[in-house]
Design a protein around this nucleic acid. Structure first.
Lengths: 95, 95
DNA sequence: TTGATAGGCAAGTGGTTACTTGCCTATAGT
DNA sequence: ACTATAGGCAAGTAACCACTTGCCTATCAA
């Protein structure tokens, strides 16, 4: 659960999620092109790649290999429980 | 909005929110005692104090002065919109 | 096979951040 | 007044994180 919050803590990663929310099944290069075009982000391919790794580790992005392409898809399930933790007065363990 | 995510990215701060969700209007010392007792956290008073500052800046905690006491209260309103951003396919700007 | 494309690996760097340490202010009790 | 309590301020440290750099692997098209 902490991984999800850490993943969301970075603005570039939130832009990536925005992009994937608009269009699923994008490759790393597609994401790079669209991020720089749409939000004037200057991040390199490797930077985006590392962000995607982290997002996948947090369960927010799922990937699918096809030949030399790797497609990335947004998985919103971890987000659907986030706010629940403190709102309904029911703290859990973890961090 | 990024401040909220950054605030939630730290496990100690999430414990603090847990604690405030259980009981509102706690002072810094109360929070310290309960955190160390309940979760075996070893953080010092100053560490917790700095976390509370950050949580207040993120809008997740509201404070109230009373004599030499400062009471801290959980404000869940920023949490109530968090998950909405990507779930309903409507990216916003920000970061 | 050659070259181009899509992506991965790993070490290094600069800035951020969580935490400590030491001292200071203010309120309250005696 | 004196002491203890609740909290604040600020500099320093160590770990972490985002990002770069350079090179490598794998797939596909010609």
């Amino acid at each position: 659960m902490g991984d999800v919050f850490k993943a969301l803590a970075d603005p570039t990663r939130r832009y990536i999620l925005d992009e994937l929310a608009e269009r699923d099944d994008q490759t790393l290069f597609e994401i790079c092109v669209r991020l720089t075009g749409k939000y004037q982000l200057t991040s390199s391919r490797q930077a985006i790649s590392q962000h995607l790794e982290l997002l996948e580790a947090a369960g927010l992005v799922r990937t699918r290999r096809e030949g030399r392409y790797k497609f990335h898809t947004l998985d919103t399930r971890p987000l659907e429980q986030i706010a629940e933790r403190w709102i309904r007065n029911k703290p859990q363990e973890n961090p």
